[in-house]
Nucleic acid binder design. Structure first.
Length: 199
DNA sequence: TTGAGGATTCTC
DNA sequence: AGAATCCTCAAA
């Protein structure tokens, strides 16, 4: 298990995102998940990014240094976690969209009583945060040192040579950018709701 | 002060 | 397909 150096994160999110596939997200209580789905969000160059229109109270941590966590509250119900990327002030990040549960499954099931199958535990950004117990307290946490109880490490498994690439989910702006990546044929990737037919 | 919209999930 | 649910931020 080796933690990823700060320099790993201090790059463009479209470069970092696919390399985060197959890395491990760790909690200090033993919960471990393998990252199998991610999306890149690129600050002022990306209309779909929370940071597109500049710094606010909510997105402040996304403007911080790479290798920290940006946690936000979504749709009045869910938390979601991003790995902040780039340099201070850029507002780059990678949304962690799905995990394959690896360890601490009992705690994950406890946190996600609605999930019947293992593949429902963390297949989606809201589910992922709930399964890992990530909420507002972890906003700004250092993913390199793990000092706040959450970190990302490598166990030597390489990212997929040919990840599945496609448009991001659940956004209405910059919908055509192919900034979503996932591990091919992995059952823990989030299921896309079929796109609403445009009449 | 207001209100529209949102990087979603669950159930029907 | 619709509901749940509430925070954020721009605009007035």
């Amino acid at each position: 298990m080796t933690s990823l150096p700060r320099a790993f994160y201090r790059r463009h999110p479209a470069q970092v995102a696919p390399e985060l596939l197959n890395k491990l997200l760790l909690r200090d209580d033993g919960r471990v998940g393998r990252i199998v789905e991610v999306e890149a969000y690129a600050g002022s160059e990306d209309p779909a990014a929370h940071t597109f229109r500049g710094r606010t109270v909510r997105n402040a941590s996304m403007f911080g240094d790479g290798g920290h966590l940006y946690v936000y509250f979504s749709y009045g119900m869910h938390w979601a976690a991003n790995a902040v990327c780039g340099e201070i002030g850029q507002g780059f990040g990678v949304l962690l969209r799905a995990l394959e549960p690896v360890d601490g499954l009992d705690l994950m099931r406890q946190a996600r009583s609605k999930a019947r199958r293992t593949q429902d535990l963390a297949s989606g950004p809201g589910r992922l945060a709930q399964a890992m117990g990530i909420d507002r307290r972890f906003d700004g946490a250092d993913l390199v040192t793990g000092a706040q109880g959450v970190c990302i490490v490598s166990d030597g498994v390489e990212p997929p040579l040919q990840p599945v690439v496609g448009p991001r989910v659940g956004i209405t702006k910059a919908v055509d950018l192919p900034w979503r990546w996932h591990v091919p044929d992995n059952p823990h990737v989030s299921k896309r709701r079929p796109l609403r037919r445009t009449e």
